[in-house]
């Protein structure tokens, strides 16, 4: 009988933990595991190019189950293509809804133009009807409340949520919702209402301590915002319910030196409450009127600082956003713009694929009608959905391919012709080390609580 040969998966990445342990990750299976210093040489030997033959030891058998070792008859290219095709399943849907396109802030780096206010009644009816009509075929629905500033249209969110909750209850659909908000109107009372509508994840931006934040993220017409947002967050912390708040810190040359003192402050206020998590990103030239004047960081500095700040926060008791771990899972970094069953619904019923190019004609992919039907230009949808790995040999050879499928940011590829790679992929060793560190800290914390 021919002996079986096992080869290292082409989708593996490895890193080293602070205590010398080996960390392994596979972007097709999503598995992440660590190995003791004793196990490490055995595992490293099996992961050599020629792999390993015959009966597997107790140490190596789990590597097959986790996808780190694959049979020499496995077509890993086909696996990636199949994973990509699985995004076409019709029982999941992700809608990004803009209950208003107005905003009470005028952030220096914002790319939006705030063309209109609250979603019109006939479009609200269209959203309700569209989701109700989809009810029979859906197993999973997720809604992202976006804008503008969605909390300016709190009543619209309530009206739509009540209808959506009826539909998902009637059809037994798993439903999750999240919100990107500036946090200014996120009072504890309204927060409780949002939780009752199943909105449980919030992205809220604070760009440093008061003087730094208020100089970049101020009210339309001027006016500070830091104290109000932080006051809301402190009040929300006292609510004994499950939720996740991602505190996003946008950094550039102006506030680079203030991020760590700010993380010290956040650690004092929210440290060791796992519901509050950090998400650090460099400011980009995202299409706003101040783009040319923004003091953005050199990309090499930015790509290093993201993880330096994330680790600094971790050392202050602030976990990193769960977005980061989910971004390295299979299909986890595919942008919604590249997913066939994802649409952005504007306040006037205009349909888009991308949230960063509202004024581009190629992003105007259709209209939502009051009766719940979508009038869609499928050629434009195809333009967003069919790019990516299948035309890019670099992506096809990449260890991260199953996670992003070459579609991390279709807009970047359209505008520059270059390959869009994620911050996580570029520093995968750092990211794996931080995931290990966060897991280890959590386990230590749980052990302390038990004893």
């Amino acid at each position: 009988m021919e002996t079986k040969r096992w080869l290292p998966s082409r989708y593996n990445a490895m890193s080293q933990a602070d205590n010398g342990e080996l960390i392994l990750y596979n972007s097709y299976s999503g598995a992440i595991a660590s190995f003791t210093v004793d196990e490490k040489p055995i595992v490293m030997s099996a992961l050599k190019r020629d792999g390993v033959s015959g009966e597997l030891s107790e140490t190596l058998q789990p590597l097959v189950e986790s996808g780190f070792l694959v049979g020499d008859d496995v077509d890993e290219d086909a696996r990636a293509r199949f994973l990509h095709q699985s995004l076409h399943r019709t029982d999941t849907m992700h809608l990004i809804v803009m209950p208003t396109e107005a905003c009470n802030f005028r952030c220096t780096y914002c790319y939006q133009t705030f063309p209109q206010g609250n979603m019109k009644p006939e479009i609200r009816e269209g959203v309700k009807q569209f989701i109700a009509q989809k009810g029979n075929s859906l197993q999973h629905l997720s809604i992202s409340w976006f804008g503008g500033e969605p909390m300016l249209a709190f009543d619209v969110i309530g009206e739509l949520s009540e209808s959506i909750l009826d539909t998902v209850a009637e059809h037994n659909i798993s439903y999750s919702a999240e919100m990107t908000t500036n946090g200014y109107y996120l009072t504890p009372d309204k927060f409780r209402s949002l939780l009752s509508w199943n909105v449980r994840r919030f992205m809220i931006t604070l760009d440093g301590m008061k003087e730094f934040h208020d100089s970049r993220r101020f009210l339309a017409g001027g006016g500070e915002t830091f104290d109000t947002i932080v006051g809301n967050l402190k009040a929300i912390k006292e609510i004994d319910e499950e939720f996740e708040i991602y505190i996003r810190i946008n950094f550039d040359e102006d506030n680079l030196g203030n991020v760590q003192p700010f993380l010290d402050y956040l650690g004092e206020q929210f440290g060791h409450d796992t519901r509050f998590q950090t998400f650090c990103r460099p400011v980009g030239r995202w299409g706003g009127e101040n783009d040319e004047d923004l003091p953005i960081c050199d990309h090499r500095v930015a790509e290093t600082k993201i993880w330096e700040f994330t680790e600094y926060g971790l050392d202050k008791g602030l976990g990193m956003s769960s977005i980061i771990e989910s971004a390295i899972m299979p299909s986890g970094s595919v942008c919604y713009a590249a997913k066939p069953h994802s649409f952005v619904i504007g306040a006037d019923g205009q349909l888009y694929k991308c949230t960063c190019s509202f004024n581009e004609e190629f992003n105007h992919v259709g209209h939502l009608l009051p009766d719940g039907t979508m009038d869609i230009d499928y050629d434009k949808v195809a333009f967003w959905v069919t790019g990516g790995e299948d035309k890019d040999t670099g992506c096809q050879a990449c260890f991260f391919r199953p996670a992003c499928q070459g579609n991390h940011c279709p807009l970047y590829r359209i505008r520059t012709g270059k390959r869009p790679c994620t911050f996580e992929k570029k520093k995968i060793k750092q990211v794996l080390r931080l995931i290990w560190k966060q897991n280890t800290k959590l386990e230590d914390l749980e052990a302390i609580e038990r004893s």
């Binding site: 960390i23 596979n26 299976s29 999503g30 598995a31 992440i32 595991a33 660590s34 190995f35 196990e39 140490t59 789990p62 590597l63 189950e65 986790s66 996808g67 696996r79 199949f82 994973l83 699985s86 995004l87 399943r89 999941t92 771990e325 899972m329 299979p330 299909s331 986890g332 995931i435 290990w436 897991n439």
Partner: peptide
């Protein structure tokens, strides 16, 4: 081997 994140199928992944 200590599992930090278990393997998932393509179906679960989406």
């Amino acid at each position: 081997m200590r599992v930090l994140k278990p393997a998932v199928s393509p179906q679960q992944a989406t």
